[in-house]
Amino acid sequence: MLNTMALIDRVQLELGAQEPWPKDAKLYQPYEVEQILLSDNANCLAVQAFLKMCNLDFVVEPRANAEAMSPSGKVPFLKAGAFVVSELEGIVSFVNNKGISLTEKFDQEAKSDMRAYMSLVHNVIEVAELYISWVDKETYNEVTSVRNGSIYPWPLNHIQNRAKRNQVIKKLKVLQWYKKSTKEVLEEVENCCQALSDRLEGKEYFFGTSCELDALLYGHVHTVLTNTKTVAMKKLADVIKKFNIITEHCRRIDEQFMRRSSCVYFG
């Protein structure tokens, strides 16, 4: 099983390039209204924004067990023709192999900067979202456990919640985030936003034209700003709202690519 996965990975690189973009590309993700969690929502939105930036057609296909269907165990994943690719990085390189790239005009330095900023968003904002969803008690009880357990019948939902929580906490421990307080987590996010806003200053997009970093940041910012049910979630949104440059950037992508009204979080 594992070996076949590695093999598929390689086959995708070699064969995927030859076929044009299929008409029936489907993006599988959890149910947005009832089920999806903060960080998953952000990643799904980032991939959607990226595909729209590339002008590629796709249909969003909500599935309760999307996470279990995904080859890497993480949502979202894309089914294009005979190929299944998961997560933003995988999908970006899959699309690049088809000759469609948002970054082909970038020089090497810009590309490495982009990679660095993407890892910054992944390692700070995404981890902060995980922390708020699974470690903060109020958010866990009122939002995360209800949503994560919503697809399972009664005793199983508690078991699944607990298993998933242990898994996330283990990850946070390894990353040395578990022992941080909510205040420290918010400080980290603020530093990260400061860095992003300093880099973005005076420009529409990070590197002139839109690229996957813009999509990734949009996904996270939009998700955080539109989910403010509990105190901790609200605090996280307030931290990001301090940076006008970042919310403007998010609004710009919303209007230009996602074509939806974004007055929700500026009201």
């Binding site: 900067d113 990679r115 660095a116 890892s119 910054l120 390692n123 990260c192 860095a195 880099r199 200053e201």
Partner: peptide, 18 residues
């Protein structure tokens, strides 16, 4: 400069995470 500090944070995160 602030922009360099921002790049520095990004590069350090990249090194630490990868």
């Amino acid at each position: 400069s602030p922009k360099q500090c921002s790049e520095m944070l990004a590069l350090t995160t990249l090194a630490n995470s990868k």
